[in-house]
Amino acid sequence: MSARYPAARPRRLRRTPALRRLVAETRLRPEELILPMFVKEGIDAPNPVESMPGVVQHTRDSLRKAAQEAAEAGVGGLMLFGIPEFKDDRGAAADDPGGIVQRALRDLSADLGDDMVIMADLCLCEYTAHGHCGVLTPTHQVDNDATLERYASIAIAQAAAGAQVVGPSGMQDGQVGAIRAALDKAGYTDVVILAYAAKYASAFYGPFRDAAEGAPQFGDRAGYQQDPANAREALREVELDLDEGADMVMVKPGLAYLDIIAKIAERVDVPVSAYQVSGEYAMVEAAARNGWIDRERAIMEALLSFRRAGAAQILTYWATEAARLLR
């Protein structure tokens, strides 16, 4: 039985910063951070995203510069999102070898080599004129199986351009299996699949849709993204993705789903990632601009909460800044 007060005084271990560091149960390192980045075709200067202060739609040149800065700060990886100049109903730019993401992947591969993990989001919402994550039926529903064919083609294009990790985020049934089979058949057996396994139909994505210019032109994505009310369903989605060949899994969003991160981390033996999404970022930035919170403390506390819940990696728009603070 543990001692009681006055013999037991837990505050002894909190008295100084050095003591607190010594006994910290959870630690955060720069190499555990992944920086999401947007690259847009047809612009000649970085374009600020109004709803995400400090985030921009990059040109290819500014992307290369920002990626190098992230690498120098010790950030572990980059997740690339592309905004093409022209969109159509099938998202043809997504797997075009000359598409914006494929060109940017080649740039980053040449610049960074093995110094940083280069990842590509694998979806269609940024590339389709309608803004949904797949091919549509005549009744404007996402055709799951036709979409898998598109995802398989995108995966091969991204791998050929230098992506070390592909991140299927469309929440279509069977997407991981279709992508794994396509990559293996094309000889890309070493390309990692980071599955957005538990992606919820969340209100926290709004600023991202400004940044990626991928808001649905009608309806919403609740028909294929998860219901925020469900936890067991997330576990089932993770199991299915792992059975299909996922190497890593992700929970998105992050802060409102720490319980889901914890449940999954306790259950699986692969790395679990958390995505600190645009709405979470924007709320902290807005509150800090109004002087309501200490910005740096809020950033680091939120990031630490993901690690405490069990996330091995964190996708965050603060990755470069946080890495510098940690170092």
Rank of each mutant, 00 (worst) to 15 (best):
T26S: 15
P30C: 03
P53N: 10
M37R: 01
P10D: 00
E41G: 03
P30F: 02
E31M: 09
A18S: 13
R27M: 04
V49Y: 12
R20G: 08
F38M: 09
P36R: 00
I43F: 10
V39Q: 02
R9I: 05
K40N: 05
E31Q: 14
R29H: 11
P17A: 13
P53G: 02
P46F: 10
P48Y: 15
R9E: 10
M37H: 01
P17W: 04
N47F: 14
R14Q: 11
R11D: 11
R12K: 12
P10Y: 07
T26G: 09
E31P: 07
R14I: 02
L13G: 02
P48I: 13
R9A: 13
L22Y: 01
R20E: 06
S51K: 15
I34E: 03
E31K: 08
A24Q: 06
T26L: 04
E31L: 04
M37A: 05
L35D: 03
E31N: 13
P48L: 14
A18K: 07
V39N: 04
L13S: 11
E32C: 07
T26N: 15
P10E: 00
L13H: 03
R12E: 11
P53I: 06
I43E: 07
E31W: 13
R12I: 09
T26D: 14
E25G: 14
K40I: 06
L33I: 02
N47Q: 15
P46V: 05
I34Q: 04
L33G: 00
V23M: 01
T26H: 14
N47P: 01
L22H: 04
V23T: 13
R20F: 02
L19Q: 14
R9M: 02
L22D: 04
L33S: 02
A24V: 05
V49F: 15
P46L: 10
A45R: 15
I43N: 06
F38N: 05
L35A: 11
T26W: 08
R20W: 02
E25D: 11
E25H: 04
A24L: 03
E32M: 13
E31I: 03
L35H: 07
L13M: 07
I34S: 02
P10S: 00
I43W: 05
A45G: 08
P46Y: 07
A18G: 08
S51L: 15
R12Y: 00
S51G: 15
L35K: 10
M52Y: 10
G42R: 12
R27F: 01
L28Q: 04
P17M: 08
L22A: 09
L28K: 06
S51Y: 08
F38I: 15
D44E: 15
K40Y: 00
K40Q: 14
L19D: 10
K40W: 01
L22R: 07
F38V: 14
L19M: 11
L35T: 00
R15L: 13
E31H: 11
R21F: 00
N47H: 13
V49N: 11
I34P: 03
K40L: 00
A45S: 15
V23H: 08
E50V: 13
A24S: 13
P46N: 04
R21V: 06
R14N: 01
G42D: 12
R9G: 00
L19A: 13
L19V: 01
R12M: 09
M52R: 10
T16K: 06
S51W: 09
N47I: 12
A45T: 13
M52Q: 08
